[in-house]
């Protein structure tokens, strides 16, 4: 069952997902926010919970709970020049590591706040975000979970969930996009 063809398919899928997610990170680091937003599906969820055990964004108080419309508001606010908490902008540098496309039972878990449907993949990675603003450089550590939907030869982001290492602690202002 786990012969060479199956392994090949797994490696190919992981590689495609990783390429896509590295490009996503690069868009954020270049602050190409309109392009970044266009990666999201119309029914997307962009989510920063405070509790890593939470599997439904409606089950608690969140740092961010955006549907696609609210995420567009977020981008528009950041692009307006009036979101003072990110004026001047944060400059970021993201490192993604350990990208895994979950398989088997794990692939149908609700870890991303939804259960992936047909043609959707549950992907997890660790992320380090270096951020520099107003003379201060800090680092955010997180576990990121995506649901990616097949879309031609690329993907749409259906869910992006970021669990910050210190989500339960007092946090600095996080006006920029993670």
């Amino acid at each position: 069952m786990t012969g060479a063809p199956a392994l090949d398919a797994t490696i190919r899928l992981t590689h495609r997902c990783e390429r896509f997610l590295l490009e996503e990170a690069d868009l954020l680091d270049r602050r190409a926010l309109t392009e970044w937003l266009s990666l999201f599906a119309d029914d997307a969820l962009y989510w920063l919970p405070m509790d890593p055990a939470q599997t439904d964004p409606g089950d608690g108080l969140n740092i961010v709970y955006d549907d696609t419309a609210r995420l567009s508001d977020r981008v528009a606010r950041l692009q307006s020049g009036l979101a003072f908490s990110d004026e001047p902008h944060s400059i970021t540098s993201r490192v993604l590591s350990g990208v895994r496309v979950l398989a088997g039972e794990e692939a149908s878990s609700s870890a991303a706040g939804r259960i992936p449907g047909a043609g959707e993949h549950l992907v997890v990675a660790r992320c380090l975000i270096g951020r520099s603003r107003q003379g201060v450089t800090d680092t955010l550590h997180g576990r990121v979970t995506w649901i990616l939907r097949e879309d031609g030869d690329s993907f749409r982001i259906v869910v992006k969930r970021i669990d910050l290492l210190n989500a339960h602690e007092p946090l600095p202002v996080l006006a920029f996009l993670l």
Binding site: L48, N62, D73, A83, L171
Partner: peptide, 27 residues
């Protein structure tokens, strides 16, 4: 109560659309 929490998240918290700008003014 579900809607109350969402309403709160809209403006408040480290990534709300309001409170971070107050904190920026403190800085």
């Amino acid at each position: 109560n579900w809607l109350r929490l969402r309403y709160h998240e809209l403006f408040y918290g480290p990534a709300g659309f309001g409170q971070p700008d107050d904190f920026e003014m403190f800085d």
